[in-house]
Design a protein around this nucleic acid. Structure first.
Lengths: 232, 232
DNA sequence: GACCACTGTATGGTCAGACCATATCTAACA
DNA sequence: TGTTAGATATGGTCTGACCATACAGTGGTC
């Protein structure tokens, strides 16, 4: 004991204080996407820290998809609150895949779970399937694996968006984006995409007529065809 | 036209270069959790940028749960690669809930999806249920809603961990952490927790005897009891 | 030899101040 | 009225300094 009072292990860093203050203000003032934060120099003065610390906090918020910074002057300049949960999720997954702290198997399992959920909800909600049809046409017209995958992504993305849950849709987009390269390789390895095409048609039709169970089965079969090595 | 050649809209910022370089090195050198990054000053010199820019990149990586920084000297000091997808996910969800860019309904739907998946896989895998039983005992002994929720979180977390998918388990933990406050209110509003207890016992037993379908149903019923206002 | 206190040093954390690039605003001017 | 030139506020970057921390070494003491 030192008799001077006690200090817990962790000192909070200056930028963490800034983060907490900003988060508090967001909650208290009810700030939402589109609202502006004070300029870095003003925040630094108000909070009694250096501009560097404010900037580090800004980087964190930007990384989390909560603010976006523009230079210059005027109503659109400075740090503006945004709402982009996708790109942080994508970065997160990509980096952790790179670090080998996640295996592709786990990512594909997660995708399986989300795709089934989204297809079921899209079918139940009687979603508009014109976007799906357009993506399908894009796949038919594709002349390279990369191009095919782009439209494939658009197809599955449309299902997720149609599910009506923005969080789950964001997860879906991030998963798909972070495994884009792997998908291209999978398509190249497969060579023939006619099986995938048939799967897509089956999914589209099941959703179109609101057949939930068939939509779920179709998605499941589709993933098994696309990544045969990962399914027993 | 200015005749001097053309410049695309977006200039990359210095810290973004640093990020790209570090990510490249992680991929090329096959760095994984536990490996150290060069010191900030060295990185700054190697990459030809200021230390501030390196620090901003570090904040980003730290936010994404990829590095962790320690001061001091020795083998454990400096920036060390880590693997914590949980805390970034939690921060992400908490901030976006605060920003009202996500609704609680969406978060609970996502939780529903993940809980069902995890319960099904835990049941199929014949998971050890001793952790679940311990959490159940903790809930029985709890004397406040906060305490109850802590053990409740532990219970559901154990199911997610038993599913064998680290990504999905991380999603589960993050979802649950970000809605901790809401859970406490829900328990207080409910008053009597005997219904929840019965649900937990039912889930535990279904997983214990490997009854996948019953586990899924039990989880679904449980969430309906816990958040009655969000289920039709 | 074993232990302990002191000093050195590499690390991240923080700050102050300067300058640049950019985008808008303002006022003078034609 | 339209245009242009300057003023200004913003983020982006750099430099250099100093602090706090925690280990590495060094030397002394027992």
């Amino acid at each position: 004991m030192d008799g001077t009072g006690w200090r817990p292990v962790k000192r909070t860093r200056a930028f963490e204080d800034v983060l907490a203050q900003i988060e508090r203000r967001i909650a208290e003032d009810g700030l939402t996407a589109g609202d502006r934060l004070p300029a870095e120099r003003h925040l630094a003065e108000q909070l009694g820290v250096s501009r560097s610390s404010v900037r580090e906090a800004m980087r964190v918020l930007e990384t989390l998809g909560v603010v976006s910074s523009q230079v210059g002057r005027g109503p659109d300049a400075g740090a503006v609150l945004t709402s982009r949960p996708d790109s942080p999720l994508t970065d997160l997954l990509r980096l952790h895949l790179g670090l080998a702290s996640l295996e592709m198997r786990e990512v594909i399992d997660a995708r399986h779970m989300i795709e089934q959920w989204a297809a079921a909800h899209a079918a139940t909600a009687g979603a508009d399937t014109s976007g799906l049809a357009a993506a399908l046409a894009g796949m038919d017209a594709a002349t390279s694996a990369e191009e095919f995958v782009e439209h494939d992504i658009a197809f599955h993305r449309a299902i997720a968006d149609a599910s009506g849950n923005r969080l789950i849709a964001a997860m879906m987009r991030s998963l798909r984006d972070s495994m884009r390269r792997y998908s291209v390789e999978a398509v190249q390895r497969l060579g023939d995409t006619s099986v995938l095409r048939a799967d897509h048609v089956r999914i589209l039709e099941a959703i179109g007529r609101g057949d939930r169970d068939e939509a779920v089965r179709a998605v499941s079969d589709h993933l098994a065809h696309a990544y045969p090595s990962l399914f027993r």
